[in-house]
Design a protein around this nucleic acid. Structure first.
Lengths: 206, 206, 206, 206
DNA sequence: GATGAATGAGCCTTCATTCAT
DNA sequence: TATGAATGAAGGCTCATTCAT
């Protein structure tokens, strides 16, 4: 019979994860010490290690949770009847999220995971698997747009989806590096990129 | 009167930088120890410190050199008479570079610099300044294409350039995470993005 | 609510200080490594750094404690009714302390602090402030002896006190350099110096 | 046939010694690096090591030269017909020397040698042997004063000489710690100490 | 269970000394 | 012979992790 309930346990884990995330967003994974995390959350060293076996495990858990939250975001796209609009809406959502402290912090951590994925196979697994989800969704939207005659059919939907997501990711980076830049031109340009595909598709069809 | 010529000294610095770059590409900045760099290049501890005052200085130097080499790449674009073609050529060049070990390693380090730039103001300075160069070039190309009637004139050339470069950067990330993916679809899709702008431009003008 | 009581914590600090003091007395500040101190006390590296932020902080603490213990010694002089006797007693106490291992070690460290005070402003502060205490006490004793007609009134009590303490310090040095020398002649000679002032005082007054 | 003359060689050694002495006076033996010495004198590393096998050898040489220069000072005392006056003159000479930069620097280095002598047998040898010289001279002066009926004959001349030199050394320390203090009261008080012996001697004889 | 003091491997850097040029 | 670049042992200190209380 456990001394603490599973729910309490989950709460505690979440507290630790959030304290760690705040530290990581501020300092990066490697400059953040366990001490920082412990101080940030008002924990004790032993307390943290009761819930996570190591610092790396905390980082891994954060990577897993980011995937989960992004997956949830993707699911909200499906419903839209207009695939081109859905893609544009996705772009806007991603970029607008960076205007909130929480969203920016989340992405800052995400960016570190991107870098870490180059060296840590496990991290790479998370990133690649996490990337697959939006790609799958956008691919579906692109394919649907092609079916509807809105997009050029000669292009691979998957490759096009990857290019669009690349543009979204690159835009996220630019906004993180220069938070002072307004997002509207960024969103508008991404929209132009998407509409370009649409119009070029229209045009070809003639 | 130094025993060592400036050229020899520069060579030595480059040797150290290259050894460090190999280590950083393999392990990341923080997992790489000075010992690693020293072993990689067959140096001695003191020898490295004669040329660089600290590990951070080596990292900073690498960031500076990446900028310089990218600046050089950008300069090669100017000459092209066809601006749209030049943008597509740039995309291809960037992505193709990742197929070589050297180019991939270079970009892996670059990606870490991107992540580091979120926390280190100096690094951020390098990244933002480094980003400005391709933006300036691509902006010029976009503006030229607009003048020539190849691109939609209603969009801000600067914002469009940022979006295109975002797409290039995002594509670089994807290739680094999944080096096994073929680059041709990536380049083709980027080309579709660029051409979309072109065609949409044509269309609007009618 | 700390697991460790303040008393236990103070004990731990004292243990570290004592181990360090033994090392410093044996090897000097600079030849003593943190490893030496750690080995001497059977500590761990991190354990020491939980109580002191740096090696210099340990040295500073030792300087502070030496002052405190000397201050305490000085306070014991005040009560004596005979000022000349009190000065002589002080001389004897200082020199006799060097016959014990503990006292000699303490003074060996003190001598290093004297040397260090020439370069380190903080150390100089400790030494000058520490010196002020015996000077103040001996000055009071000299002034009292002058009032009682035991000392020549034409001399500045402060300057005389400084000279006497100088003689005590110089004698400490000699005993540390040549521990094999007997202390009795040293004490006797210091006594002669003090008595000389006394008798010259008597004589002048006639 | 040596490439450089012995005279040139001796000059070079002296240059190195002097550069080292300046550094040691400023920073202490241990905080001074060979680099400091090399920079101070405008030497090259190899150049210094051609003349001295190690840093310790430079320190040892300085200790030896200090002895020699003090020996020379002592020899100048012998001639004086008035032994009590000679002792007072010695005190004055020692303290006044501290008013010049050169003399103060010399003594600052000397003080470090005193501290070093506690740990380094070789240094201790220099200090003890160096101390013996003034003791011998002052002992002779004290003995002579006793013969002349100027000093109390009941005291050991050697012990008295040690006590006087102790007072001189202690005064040197005080002046080095507080260079802002005027020397006149110091000299006057030392004089009072010496005269005390004299007058007490006179008195006893009655 | 919770706490936080203790552990110790390992990190970055320095610096006396050597030796190729 | 003079130079100063190179060497590498060792130093002070950090920090993820453990475990006695």
């Amino acid at each position: 019979m456990p001394r603490i309930t599973p729910a309490r346990r989950a709460d505690r884990r979440a507290e630790i994860i959030n304290a760690a995330r705040r530290c990581f967003a501020r300092l990066g994974f490697h400059r953040t010490t366990m001490r920082d995390i412990i101080a940030e959350g008002g924990f004790s060293a032993g307390g943290v290690y009761r819930h996570f076996p190591s610092k790396d495990a905390i980082i891994a858990e954060i990577a897993i949770r980011r995937r989960a939250s992004e997956d949830a975001l993707m699911d909200s796209l499906h419903a839209l009847p207009d695939p081109v609009g859905a893609i544009v809406a996705l772009a806007r959502t991603l970029v607008e999220a960076l205007e909130t402290d929480e969203g920016a912090a989340d992405r800052r951590v995400g960016t570190q995971i991107w870098a870490e994925a180059l060296h840590e196979p496990e991290m790479r697994g998370h990133v690649v698997a996490g990337l697959a989800v939006p790609i799958r969704h956008v691919t579906a939207l692109v394919a649907r747009a092609q079916e509807l005659g809105q997009f050029d059919r000669s292009q691979s939907p998957d490759a096009l989806a990857r290019a669009l997501i690349a543009a979204f990711h690159g835009t996220v980076l630019q906004k993180l590096w220069q938070p002072e830049l307004p997002i509207e031109p960024m969103v508008t340009s991404l929209q132009a990129l998407v509409n370009g595909l649409a119009k070029s598709g229209n045009k070809r069809r003639r």
